[in-house]
């Protein structure tokens, strides 16, 4: 067995049994890590594979969350069924954004701003939509009777730990398969040079739209999870640009276009945030913002020192194949 495979299996086993030694807090931290890894993986399909910089992925998180939550609250539809319309809605939104962008040759920074604009429009829209609570927030009922209904995504910290772990692993698997597929290779070609890709028979617009569709569909599930994990939705939070930024950070820090980048990035960033919270508390600094200042500085240092991401550097050192992206 190759060294990389041994490492992977050991890590997986550790993650499976780890909850035994975890308290509620640690479980919640890992849920955040897996969520960030999952969403980062979804974003990476667009940016890392197809070279489309989206800074508005909160659009798909929010739409997915609101769609599944509204179906559950208003019609009692299980999120396991509700996730399909949620996905469909996000894919429609993705096609609209993508079609506008590609049809009118809106690329690079302009495309990124288009994605932000759509997320902002959705944020303001949902802030006024009374059907889902408008600015007052949209709350999912939490009661003793429904406590164990896993099919309604009702459960304790352990349930969400394994659910989020499963999602992160599934995303890894999907991205692994995509990366090796013909489509994955055509995405890379498109990312590297769209004009040259066209010249060797790649329908660039279609490849890009498919990337947006897959990314949006995957991200919508991150939204469904969010809704049923937190049980409350505020448009001002879920559609906020800061959420989009959180989503892009893990893969960028970990290594864009790599399979393990989003995971490594999430494993660095989420604990870094938590550690900073703990550290500022331990030092008796009670002021707001201190943690975020260090976080911001940390980002600047990481991107200055490891521009290609942390994972390719590690992989090269370990002699694992993914050093190249």
């Amino acid at each position: 067995m190759k060294k990389a495979e041994v490492v992977a299996i050991v890590a997986l086993l550790a993650l499976l049994v780890a909850p035994l030694a975890m308290d509620r807090y640690l479980l919640s931290v890992f849920v955040l890590v897996f969520w960030a890894a999952y969403a980062g993986q979804a974003w990476n399909v667009m940016m890392g594979f197809a070279g489309l910089l989206s800074l508005g992925h909160s659009l798909y998180v929010g739409l997915g969350a609101y769609a599944a939550a509204a179906l559950f609250v208003h019609f009692g539809i299980s999120p396991l069924l509700g996730l399909f319309p949620a996905m469909a809605l996000c894919m429609i939104a993705g096609v609209v954004v993508g079609w506008l962008g590609f049809r009118f040759r809106i690329e690079g920074v302009y495309f990124a701003l288009l994605t932000i604009a759509f997320a902002e429009v959705a944020r303001i829209g949902f802030d006024h939509l009374t059907w889902t609570g408008a600015a007052g927030g949209f709350f999912l009922p939490v009661s003793r009777e429904t406590a164990g209904q896993w099919w309604n995504l009702r459960g304790g910290p352990l349930f969400f730990y394994y659910l989020s772990l499963g999602m992160a692993l599934a995303a890894l698997g999907i991205c692994w398969a995509l990366r090796r597929s013909r489509l994955g290779h055509q995405w890379l070609a498109t990312r590297e040079d769209a004009e040259a890709a066209r010249a060797i028979g790649i329908n660039v617009t279609r490849a890009r739209i498919v990337a947006v569709l897959i990314s949006a569909a995957m991200t919508s599930l991150a939204g469904v999870f969010y809704a049923f994990y937190y049980n409350n939705l505020f448009a001002a939070q879920i559609f906020d640009m800061s959420r989009s930024i959180d989503i892009v950070l893990a893969p960028i820090v970990g290594g864009i276009g790599t399979l393990f980048g989003p995971i490594i990035g999430a494993l660095i960033l989420i604990p870094l945030g938590e550690l900073l919270t703990e550290a500022t508390r331990a030092l008796g600094i009670n002021a707001p913002g201190v943690k975020a200042i260090f976080y911001g500085l940390g980002l600047m240092v990481i991107i200055a020192l490891a521009p290609g991401g942390v994972w390719p550097a590690i992989a090269r050192r370990l002699g694992i194949g993914e050093g190249r992206r």
Binding site: I245, L249, I252, I293, G296, L297, L299, M300, I303
Partner: peptide, 8 residues
């Protein structure tokens, strides 16, 4: 990322 870090 650099400028977002600075913004934060």
């Amino acid at each position: 990322i650099l400028l977002i870090g600075l913004a934060i």
